[in-house]
Amino acid sequence: MQLISHKMNKQYAKEVLGWKYNHPYNFYNNELTNETLQELLNGSYYAVVNAEKNLIGFFCVGESAQVPTGQQFGAYVDGFIDFGLGMHPEETGKGDGYEYCTFILNLIEEKYKNFPIRLTVANFNKRAIHLYEKMGFVKSNEFNSNNCSFSTMIKG
Rank of each mutant, 00 (worst) to 15 (best):
A122V: 14
V16T: 11
K111E: 15
K134H: 08
E91D: 07
C60T: 14
Q66W: 01
K14H: 09
I129M: 12
S64I: 04
Q2F: 04
E39H: 14
G93I: 06
M8Q: 12
V16P: 08
L17P: 12
K126C: 07
E133K: 12
F58G: 04
H23Y: 11
W19E: 02
I56K: 14
H88P: 00
P89S: 06
K134I: 03
R127I: 01
Y100G: 05
W19Y: 06
L119T: 12
I4D: 01
K111G: 06
Y12Q: 14
N29H: 07
A75M: 02
F83V: 12
L40S: 04
G93N: 00
E90H: 13
R127A: 10
N50M: 09
N50Y: 01
L40N: 12
I117Y: 09
Y21I: 09
N50A: 09
E15N: 01
F124W: 04
V48C: 01
M1E: 13
P68M: 02
Y100R: 06
L3P: 03
A13D: 04
T36S: 15
I108M: 09
Y46N: 08
D96R: 03
K14L: 15
M87W: 08
M87D: 02
S44T: 15
T36F: 00
F73V: 01
Y112A: 02
Y45V: 08
Y132L: 09
P116V: 05
M1T: 12
K20W: 00
N114Q: 12
G79Y: 05
T102R: 05
Y45M: 06
E35W: 00
Q2R: 15
G79R: 06
G57D: 07
L17C: 14
I4C: 03
V67P: 01
N22L: 13
F59E: 11
K20H: 03
T102P: 00
N9Q: 10
T33W: 00
V49C: 11
N50C: 08
S5T: 14
E31N: 15
I104R: 02
F80D: 14
T69Y: 03
K14R: 12
Q38H: 12
L105Q: 07
Y76L: 10
Q38D: 13
G70T: 04
